[in-house]
Design a protein around this nucleic acid. Structure first.
Lengths: 235, 235
DNA sequence: CGGGGGTTTGACTAGTATCAAGTGAGGTGG
DNA sequence: CCACCTCACTTGATACTAGTCAAACCCCCG
């Protein structure tokens, strides 16, 4: 599945199935194919650092990627997790404004930023798609602002689990089985909490009978309604 | 200055000086002029609500506008303040994802969203500009995420004052005179703090000799270096 | 001069961070 | 195959930041 010698074949597949190319315009497909290439990364490997020149726009094909920023004194804030079918590295000027790091072993597709720009001039349809994706990143960032500014630890954790479930309900059933590839530390850095608070809150949810934790990276949601109440979802 | 009978004249001026039209392409100017119109709003007047159909993209010509979201139980989070020369209402799909409200009496220019799309297809240069603006909104949102998730009340307030100063140093000198048109409550809803904490922190800064508060809506920064230290600015 | 909204201050509380120790699971080497 | 090591996670005790509740103050305006 991650064999590097499949690169040529896989790259063709990407160009056809990419988020940037979901309609049936042959010219657009060819154009995207020309500027795309595959990249494989190991868990915890850094894809690019905040401040690196933003040469590429990426799309996750398989795996999970996290985006983060740091304060001068070393506190880390994760601005988002990126799942298959979602792009990242968009909306950068000369350099990336955040660090991107693989949570799990991942398969990525990357598009040359410059040549993307050229392609957009030639194919306005591509521009619309690009803009739609930047917009959805913006909407996600604003949701995150709401989450961080105005919610308790319990609400944050509950919201986080619900977001995971949207991407992740393997069996789509009640109870719901969630795969949680990121560490408690990562979750804390995402929600503006410490590792300990994340752990304590999960323990509390467990004791309340809302979730079960068979092991570190799996969570079963046994009472979805209760979890949704706790998340205090907004409009 | 806010006389409505100046609409026609002012509108021409906008089309020429708008952020969406800073280069010298006559065709682009004409195109933008056709789809633009002026709008005047009073302080505290709502421009659009979260969930309203997103018919227009806006630009602030004069005044200050705030963008906010609400949780179900009524807690408000301000996602950003918008100053002259900056656009808002971008990046929306069918409906706006936040509420926009005037902080002070403001003069706005609005562009039909649909016709903007058409114009972009015709003038790719406009598309690039539009994308650049959406990108800068995204970058700002991610900065805000870092601010909310990983900073103390003092760091938040100090950062806020520094951001204000970027827009606002009337005399560009040390000491710096800041006009603060929003209420303490607004500042709190922006930084994820209560009114009381905002007030207390400002009082503390005053006692430390970093700022002075001649009246409610003006702040003098007497020790900029110290303020910058307190803000713990990131990379 | 009086009223009201925004602001400041005070006392107290609650929630989360911090510091510290203990537990458990996965991986490595003997 | 098992003992050991490590790293992530959990749990506990305590400290401290910011929130809550309440009251007083101060502009700003009519």
């Amino acid at each position: 599945m991650f064999a590097h010698n499949q690169l040529a074949t896989a790259s063709t597949e990407i160009a056809v199935n990419s988020v940037f190319c979901q309609d049936n315009q042959v010219a657009l497909k060819n154009q995207l194919f020309e500027i795309s290439s595959l990249q494989y990364v190991q868990a915890k490997e850094t894809i690019f650092w905040e401040g690196d020149p933003s040469d590429y726009v990426y799309e996750v094909l398989e795996g999970v990627v996290l985006l983060s920023k740091m304060t001068l004194d070393g506190r880390r804030q994760i601005t988002g997790f990126v799942y298959p079918g979602q792009p990242f590295g968009l909306g950068a000027g000369e350099q990336h404004t955040y660090t991107a790091e693989a949570v799990t072993r991942s398969r990525l597709c990357r598009y040359s930023h410059n040549r993307m720009d050229q392609s957009i001039t030639i194919y306005p349809a591509l521009g619309h798609r690009y803009m739609a994706w930047t917009s959805s990143e913006l909407a996600a960032a604003q949701d995150q602002i709401l989450l961080l500014g105005r919610r308790t630890a319990m609400e944050k954790i509950a919201s986080f689990l619900l977001r995971l479930s949207e991407r992740n309900d393997e069996y789509g059933e009640d109870p719901m089985y969630l795969f949680v590839p990121m560490t408690r530390h990562d979750i804390g850095d995402y929600l503006g909490l410490t590792t300990e608070t994340v752990s304590r809150t999960l323990t509390l949810l467990d004791k309340m009978g809302v979730i079960e934790r068979p092991n570190q990276s799996n969570i079963i949601v046994s009472d979805l309604d209760h979890l949704m109440d706790l998340a205090e979802n907004d409009t």
